[in-house]
């Protein structure tokens, strides 16, 4: 780890991305309170290290399949904060012209295949994307992000089996935040060691501290290296969401003490403190990164505020090609 963090440039880039997500998400929560954003909104606050470390391990030709808690992944992948914020505002300037909203961000330019709000629903699709890469002789890797709740779904087991059977280039990135909505892992799984599930498919598996972005990044890079030209790999990132499952969730199922304990391990101050201790980051530099993140978010809010509405006449566009119903 220490040799990795010595690469101050990488570490600072990862810190910057985590701050971008954190400020973006905090602003989303405020905007939700102001009714600017509606529907379901699932915040990623606390889990930033996973998306940042893992997405940054991918190349431009790789593909991503994500969940409904995916703003951070999209942001790090290169979907603009403007396009994401405008999407949450339901504006035509959004990445999906207001069709998807918070849970369904898509971006063809960065091979970002959603934004899937069916738990486990993205996993078979990731297997197929990997199959397409293989059949067309491309060296791409498909990263499938999913929560630990998804391991209870048949889609998880079927997809793990198919990917392992056909040795397809899928990186199964499990974001274990220990709660499937309000149901703790131990209350829903007979086997809570998620890596043991991967072993059942003969798939290499690693458990990683998902609050440590350097550890996440290193593990993800290793996983992607193994997957590229090899077979699928499973990585469990142990992480925690500070906020409730969604804006509708009263969060009655977790101890305050547990939340506070995880917050002490927070990915942003965890990394910034270490960098400061190593003399690779000053408080002034940290504040500058933070201010830059806030500026990006405020610009995105202004962009979304100034956005326009998709004309109602275009309601039935993009149901099937070239046809209106």
């Amino acid at each position: 780890m220490s040799e990795n963090i010595d690469n101050g440039e990488t570490a600072l880039a990862l810190l910057r991305d985590m701050l971008r997500i954190r400020r973006f998400e905090e602003r989303c929560a405020e905007l939700y309170g102001e009714s600017k954003i509606r529907g379901f909104l699932h915040l990623y606050i606390g889990e930033e290290a996973v998306a940042v470390g893992a997405v940054r391990a991918l190349g431009p030709d790789d593909a991503i399949v994500a969940t409904y808690r995916e703003h951070g992944h999209a942001l790090v992948r290169g979907v603009s904060a403007n396009a994401i914020m405008a999407e949450m505002y339901g504006r035509r300037e959004g990445c999906c012209r207001g069709r998807g909203g918070s849970m369904h961000l898509f971006d063809a330019a960065t091979r970002f295949y959603g934004g899937n709000a069916i738990v486990g629903g993205g996993l078979p699709i990731a297997v197929g994307l990997a199959l397409a890469d293989r059949l067309q002789g491309r060296a791409g890797v498909t990263a499938a992000f999913f929560g630990e709740g998804a391991v209870a779904e048949g889609a998880f087991h079927e997809s793990m089996n198919l990917a392992a059977l056909w040795r397809l280039p899928v990186a199964f990135f499990c974001e274990n935040n220990f709660y499937a909505m309000g149901t703790a892992l131990a209350r829903s799984e007979s086997q809570t060691d998620l890596c043991a599930k991967a072993a059942a498919f003969g798939m290499p598996a690693t458990k990683v501290d998902g609050m440590d972005v350097m550890a996440v990044h290193e593990a993800a890079r290793e996983a992607v290296r193994q997957v590229r030209g090899g077979g699928p790999v499973f990585v469990e990132f142990q992480t925690y969401r500070y906020r409730a499952h969604s804006m509708f969730d009263p969060d009655l199922y977790r101890d305050r003490a547990e939340i506070e304990a995880w917050k002490k391990r927070g990915p942003i101050h965890n990394l910034s403190n270490r960098l400061k201790a190593l003399g690779k980051l000053t408080e002034a530099q940290f504040l500058a990164l933070d201010a830059e993140a806030t500026k990006e978010v405020e610009a995105a809010v202004a962009f979304a505020e100034a956005g326009s509405l998709e004309p109602i006449e275009d309601l039935a566009l993009d149901v099937v090609a070239g046809r209106k119903r």
């Binding site: 295949y113 078979p124 699709i125 197929g128 199959l131 059949l135 498909t142 997809s159 089996n161 198919l162």
Partner: peptide, 19 residues
């Protein structure tokens, strides 16, 4: 395998991937 959800879903992914 007898995994309708996975192989139909994989068909979707493969179609998205250019097949």
């Amino acid at each position: 395998p007898l995994s309708e959800l996975a192989f139909v879903g994989a068909g979707i992914g493969a179609a998205l991937g250019g097949m």
